[in-house]
Amino acid sequence: MRQVIILLIAIFLFNVPQSIHAEEATSLHTWKELNHTSDQILQLVKQEEFEEAKQMLDYFSVSFLEVDFQEEGITMSSLRTVTSSFEKAVEAVTAIDMPLDQRIFTVTAFRLAIDALSSEHHPLWLHTEKSVMNAIRAMKETIGEGETQAFQHRFNEFLRHYDMIRPALFIDIEPQQLQRVDSQITFLERIRNESLDEDKVISHLEIMEKEWTNLYQRIKEDSADPSLWWVMFTIGGMITMSLSYVGWKKYRAEKRKVRVKE
């Protein structure tokens, strides 16, 4: 009986995912290609191969316009965000005197936006958690030590990172949460131009830290592959049934022994 159950589990695992992937193969291939192209563009910019990056952007534009946005469920707001990121990426690779780090930040924003649009599970921008949280903690540390100049520098660095991931956030998170994040940053920008109240700034940074922690955690939970959870629960159920069956057989055997003794 145990061998039969194991065989059923194996058949189930091999057959179900294949049927799911077969239905989505075309769409996944298209998005995988677009994702790969955006990554190539970023790598070319890092290598300062701007002419080749521009050619790849042209190729991306043609490929992207072939996507059926309505069928893929892409909203107009997400489409505008991607279009804006694309235009800024083109500007970054064609500008004459833009610093290299600014080019990389701009094209990275485009790269993260495309990934956010195409990835159902664990988008790339989640990897910015460490740098963003460290930037917030660095701001708390500098303002707590009264180093206002260092605080201004840390805040500017944080804003650069935020500008880089904001297009992806616009695509991935709920408008209400993005509005809260924007409002918190706007408030901090306003009070930093006034006489900096140490306690007020630290209190606000703690609110921001909590907001960003919740944001990353929620997206991680939402990004978990539902098919994986489904398989895990199914396997767990089968294992439970198997163990219950074994326990029941053992109980019957013990009961039979008691009757024989009697």
Rank of each mutant, 00 (worst) to 15 (best):
S244N: 12
R190V: 15
E141D: 05
K255T: 14
I191W: 08
L44Y: 10
M133N: 04
E71N: 00
G236H: 03
P17H: 01
M241A: 14
P123L: 04
M164V: 08
I96H: 06
R180N: 15
L8M: 11
I5N: 02
E147G: 00
V181D: 02
N15T: 14
T106H: 10
K261E: 15
L178A: 13
H161S: 08
S223M: 07
Q179I: 06
E209L: 06
R137L: 12
Q176V: 12
H161K: 05
E194Y: 02
M232T: 10
S119H: 08
E49W: 00
H127S: 15
I96A: 08
M238Q: 02
S119V: 04
S63W: 10
K200G: 10
N156Y: 01
L13G: 06
T94P: 04
V90F: 13
I239E: 12
Q18S: 08
I143L: 01
F105I: 04
F155R: 00
R166D: 13
R180E: 15
E254S: 12
F64W: 11
Q70N: 10
S131G: 05
P226M: 11
W212T: 03
F86M: 09
I185P: 09
G73H: 09
I74N: 10
I202N: 02
K220R: 14
G144D: 06
E87A: 12
V260C: 01
L215H: 05
L215G: 02
A138W: 06
Q152S: 04
E66R: 08
M56G: 02
E147R: 04
L79C: 05
L13M: 13
T148M: 05
F60I: 08
Q102V: 09
H29R: 08
K200C: 06
K220E: 15
Q55I: 03
I185R: 05
Q179M: 13
V201F: 01
F50E: 04
E262N: 14
L28Y: 09
P17L: 01
K249T: 14
F12P: 00
K261P: 03
L28A: 12
Q177P: 00
E66F: 08
Q217I: 08
K140A: 13
N214V: 15
T148Q: 09
W229H: 12
V231E: 10
V90C: 13
R256E: 15
K210Q: 11
H21I: 10
L7V: 07
Y59S: 14
A109Q: 03
E23I: 07
K249V: 13
D225W: 09
M98E: 05
L57G: 03
I185E: 11
E24S: 04
I114C: 02
L112D: 11
T30H: 11
E33P: 00
